[in-house]
């Protein structure tokens, strides 16, 4: 049997809002490590990795590892049936082809049963060692930059140098360049921009995906953007001391 109880149910709603437009169907893996997910978008350009650790839940019981295939739009519909302040319990019996969502509030409770799906998916090994530039900045600022740039062009070039991180785009009406410099705010660390770099790196990415990633903004005040020497982008939002949601995006390369 698998059962988890999340007092701050709104957190799970925010997670679903962050990934449901990027990924259609996904396996939620339940194990001693936590409640996790790894899935690619239908075009296989982006990968999302989610982890919610057991100690973040009021109750977490996982008798044996199970994988629950869910349509994320349907899961989102069910989560929207609960109130924002509700406690959410998710339960699945061994061998069952359904999962139960229970919403509790001081006024009562509600149960929803959703059919599970068989989904073929591969688990991908993620090598973090090739990281050559890391930028941590306010998530709202990153969201604003992606939105502004997508009104000008379709592709963003992200360049990290000693000067800072530059986001550039070009389109029919002209070009746009936004530079963020390192800025440490001791009193409000969440408003800082921190750049760590072993070597300058520059790579370009489709803005459509970047804007999709920023739907995770309500989960965290800060976002961490990493570029590897192979020009792969990782965008990470931490989830209040219980885990993270990470988006990986493959670059566009000059042919």
């Amino acid at each position: 049997m698998f059962e988890l109880r999340l007092v701050q149910g709104s957190l799970l709603k925010k997670v679903l809002e962050a990934i449901k437009d990027l990924v259609n169907d996904a396996n939620f893996d339940c194990s001693a490590t936590g409640f996790s997910l790894q899935a690619m978008d239908p075009s296989h350009v982006a990968l999302v990795a989610l982890l919610l650790r057991p100690d973040g839940f009021e109750h977490y019981r996982c008798d044996r590892n199970i994988s629950m295939g869910m349509n994320l739009n349907n899961m989102s519909k069910i989560l929207k049936c609960g109130g924002n302040d509700d406690i959410i319990t998710i339960r699945a019996d061994d061998g069952s082809d359904t999962v139960t969502f229970m919403f509790e509030s001081p006024n009562g409770s509600a149960n929803f049963e959703m059919n599970l799906m068989d989904i073929d998916s591969e688990h991908h090994g993620i090598d973090e060692s090739k990281c050559c530039a890391v930028v941590r900045m306010p998530s709202s600022e990153f969201q604003r930059i992606c939105k502004v740039l997508s009104s000008i062009g379709d592709t963003v070039v992200i360049s990290v140098t000693n000067e800072g991180v530059q986001f550039s785009t070009r389109g029919d009406i002209g070009t746009a360049n936004i530079v963020c410099r390192q800025n440490i705010n001791v009193d409000k660390p969440e408003e800082s921009t921190v750049i760590e770099m072993s070597q300058p790196v520059s790579s370009q990415f489709p803005l459509r995906y970047m804007n999709s990633f920023t739907k995770a903004t309500p989960l965290s005040n800060t976002v961490t953007i990493s570029l590897t020497s192979e020009l792969l982008l990782a965008v990470e939002y931490t989830i209040a001391e219980m885990g993270y949601i990470r988006f990986y995006l493959a670059p566009k390369i000059e042919d």
């Binding site: 688990h123 990986y248 566009k252």
Partner: peptide, 14 residues
């Protein structure tokens, strides 16, 4: 012209 790489170019599946 730019070529969009695939995520599977970067990760090893099991």
């Amino acid at each position: 012209p730019c070529l969009q790489r695939k995520i599977s170019d970067y990760f090893s599946g099991d």
